[in-house]
Nucleic acid binder design. Structure first.
Lengths: 223, 223
DNA sequence: TAGATTGTTAATCGATTAACAATC
DNA sequence: TAGATTGTTAATCGATTAACAATC
């Protein structure tokens, strides 16, 4: 073998980590927070795996992508692992987020507490309805979409949530990109075209139900 | 009660078709509907793949799981493929769905039109707030959670959406299972324990944002 | 210590991509 | 026919699981 045994210089996390692993990382974090809430100081790969439906090997392998966090013979100290995962996910800080679109979904999301609990703060909302511009919803100022670039810059916004009708989503996305936003969480039922340097996550509520109906219809007993 | 075909130890259900494939099937459907809307009668694996960011081979391979839908030299007839995918997903019919929890998110989801467009109809809503019981929201009757089993039976409900606080979600899920519901779409930030014969899809809005912050923080150029 | 559990390597399993004969 | 595109098989790639020495 002529291969050097040198480790590659990428220390913590390059884009070599699959999305599925990152997704599970969030689940580990959520479960660890729950375990702490229940009074546990430590856990282990078997317990975490059982709670989430994964094998113990997978839990350890996933974490191994980012370093060594456990103690042989003991497991993982919950608070310590929580801090480590938050650092990896980037949620050891607070992110100001833009909300675009104040229809039913957008307004509901403005009121949702779960974002803030995990380090995301809606810093500004945008719409095109003049009735809404200038008002305040849940303590968040509503701006016209035209002010996007300005507000994004002033407030240091890097992430945005798109909750506009499908027909408007791509145009909004283009504006977000032009304003310098780096990541978009899209609730519109369309696939957004974004440049490579902008990250994209899509949630389509109807699609989630479709996954369910497929599972139900295709279960052995159910024709 | 006879599970006679015990070939594989666990998850004998839809193990033949991976979840990832089913998820892409929904994306194909959405894109095909968009293509029809734009006036296209046919498409092909290269076009579908390009629009969604997949290879043409993957599109064909995914569809091959379910049969032969294309025409060599031509591609796919949009309307025909739409009908085929809807049949596979089980959305060639209308599904009555239960909504449990009428907080901000639950109410927003009641108003969301996207469900109905894809064949899902909220048939009843449930809460424990006596102020809401008996009222009508968006034309949908609100029942007390105690009436779940009864209403589920009468309305033939097989799917449910859980939009209650995390602390209440497992209890609600247990009630849904007891009422005979076969699939649960869970928006509460907890992992629900459900029996094998009940399907589960989870959407955690904070987790979606975490995926985004991870992507942004771990992009080569960004600290 | 003895028991428990990690991190990691090797083996297995599954999913994606490439290639091409079939065919419209 | 000539050109285009499918469905499918084979090759590649990646992810999950199993196993175990290290170690607390």
């Amino acid at each position: 073998m002529d291969e050097s045994k040198e480790k590659s210089p990428q220390t913590s996390t390059e884009s070599t980590v699959p999305r599925a692993v990152v997704s599970r990382l969030s689940l580990y974090l959520r479960e660890l927070q729950q375990l702490v809430h229940e009074g546990n100081a430590t856990t282990n790969s078997t317990q975490l795996g059982t709670l989430l439906g994964f094998t113990d090997a997978q839990v350890r392998k996933d974490l191994a992508n980012f370093g060594q966090f456990g103690y042989p013979g003991i497991g993982y100290r919950c608070e310590e692992l929580i801090a480590a995962i938050k650092k990896i996910l980037g949620t050891d800080r607070s992110w100001p987020v833009a909300m675009v679109g104040l229809g039913n979904l957008g307004r509901a999301l403005l009121r949702y507490r779960g974002f803030q609990e995990q380090g995301f703060q809606i810093a500004a909302a945008f719409d095109v309805d003049v009735e809404k511009i200038g008002s305040t919803v849940e303590g968040i100022e509503v701006f016209h979409l035209d002010q996007l670039a300005e507000v994004v810059t002033v407030k240091g916004i890097r992430l945005a949530i798109v909750a506009v009708p499908g027909a408007a989503a791509q145009t909004v996305a283009d504006s977000l990109v032009a304003a310098g936003v780096e990541g978009v969480l899209n609730f519109a039922p369309v696939t957004l075209a974004l440049p490579d340097h902008v990250s994209r996550v899509g949630v389509d509520l109807a699609i989630e139900l479709e996954q369910l109906s497929f599972a139900v219809v295709n279960r052995p007993e159910n024709p």
